[in-house]
Design a protein around this nucleic acid. Structure first.
Lengths: 242, 242
DNA sequence: CGTGAGGTTGACGATGATCAAAAAGTGTGG
DNA sequence: CCACACTTTTTGATCATCGTCAACCTCACG
């Protein structure tokens, strides 16, 4: 029942789960494991692996094209699932790489599905969490499809800040961020060179400064306005539990 | 237990659901409703509406930016959910527009959640379906982020064809497709003018002809090769049911 | 026959990629 | 502490892709 369990904290903060349900949730966590930065946890095409909950550190999920380009789909921060979709679909459609050294707890799918049978509200909570993740990917899609490079970067930095703020790792002042410009480029569908130029623009525009592993919002309101940032899609009301 | 119910058909084809579970699933379908092309079913920001299963016709889900641009996130074809994420998250992060006149059956969330309690395997099946949808969005994201306009169009036409083939509405020869070039543009993050040019290229390259409401694959293998199309992400094995 | 929606094509320009090179940090071993 | 290799950031120059503007065509429909 430890509050230090990031999944329990995440779901528990937004879903009224009973003690019994929390106990089931906590019991899902098996082995604690660590992975070093840069070494994939999950490979595209791999099957039958476990899912994880990220306890500390950052990871990213991405897809590689045959010609070697890659697209980062999403970054995961503490409390997020890693590879849930992979296990549900039997085979992973993407790879997952730790951006920093990470700690995770393993979750066995069999246990998860058993837990659904015991506590259906938990199934709803997980479905809700998956929907939130999907909403994030959708917003990322809009970002890449319809915003220019500068707006895209601005929007991305704001979104990441909002997500980090939810787990106490950021504020409207800024946040620690160890992503390289190459990672940003792969996430935003840009070249690393252009990422650098765009960051300079935003810095010189007095909106946000990304430097030395820290994102500092110099003018949060102006930035949010510029990026047309509307955080309602990450709305934090819990699922429709009855 | 009519097989004409598209959701039952879709889930039933990949999940071993018992008669009792199928009955619960069928009982979810409430009113049958129709909507005319072009008039939104769901508006971005709207809350507390129902979810639907698409019975006939095509729809699309999209997001509007403040400056009037729009990004189509996905097209829905018969058997697909409409607005499931919207109800789980309380408030819709996107709009849904019928591309053609459509028929849907309404599903009340309360019923859906009750059904989870009765038949947890159903919850797993729905979670699996949601994961498949998410995998589709992810592939779309990669499409827009890392493929050029021509590859993007090629990939999109192939993916749509594969999805339609699953519900008996297409083959490797081609499929009926009533999407306008404007819709394609909004889906692929291109301008309508460029969509036209790209379609010409693909036609003159002898790979695919989109004309008069029909997509004809002139050389399926060459097209799939050109687009680096790997359909494994829409893999059709069912969820991990126990 | 007129109107409007969708499709087609050309000319031009802007956004962002690519190529190239240098500067600044980071970690390693001597 | 320094030399080094290596990664990451920074900047400039050039080029290609794709958007914008504009015009015209076709077709369906009233």
């Amino acid at each position: 029942m430890t509050e230090t369990n990031p999944l329990v904290r995440k779901l528990g903060a937004f879903v009224a789960l009973s003690d019994a349900e929390l106990a089931v949730l906590a019991s899902l966590h098996k082995r604690r494991r660590t992975f070093v930065a840069g070494r994939d946890l999950v490979h595209q095409g791999q099957s039958d692996q476990a899912a994880y909950i990220l306890a500390s550190g950052w990871a990213c999920s991405y897809k590689l094209l045959e010609d070697g380009q890659r697209q980062i789909v999403d970054f995961q921060i503490p409390g997020d699932f890693l590879g849930l979709r992979s296990v549900l679909l039997h085979v992973s459609d993407h790879s997952i790489e730790p951006v920093t050294d990470i700690e995770v707890t393993e979750i066995l799918v069999a246990d998860l599905l058993d837990a659904f049978a015991q506590t259906p509200r938990l199934a709803t909570a997980i479905l809700w969490a998956a929907s939130r993740d999907e909403a994030m990917v959708v917003e990322h899609l809009v970002d890449i499809g319809r915003r220019n490079a500068t707006e895209r970067m601005a929007h991305f930095l704001l979104e990441l800040g909002a997500r980090l703020a939810l787990v106490g790792m950021g504020s409207k002042a800024g946040y620690a961020c160890l992503l390289s410009q190459y990672l940003l480029a792969d996430a935003l569908g840009l070249s690393a060179v252009h990422v650098n130029r765009v960051l300079r623009q935003l810095r010189e525009g007095g909106m946000v400064t990304f430097r030395d592993g820290f994102v500092a919002f110099d003018n949060y309101h102006q930035l949010a306005d510029f990026a047309q940032f509307d955080p309602s899609y990450m709305d934090q009301r819990g699922p429709l539990l009855r």
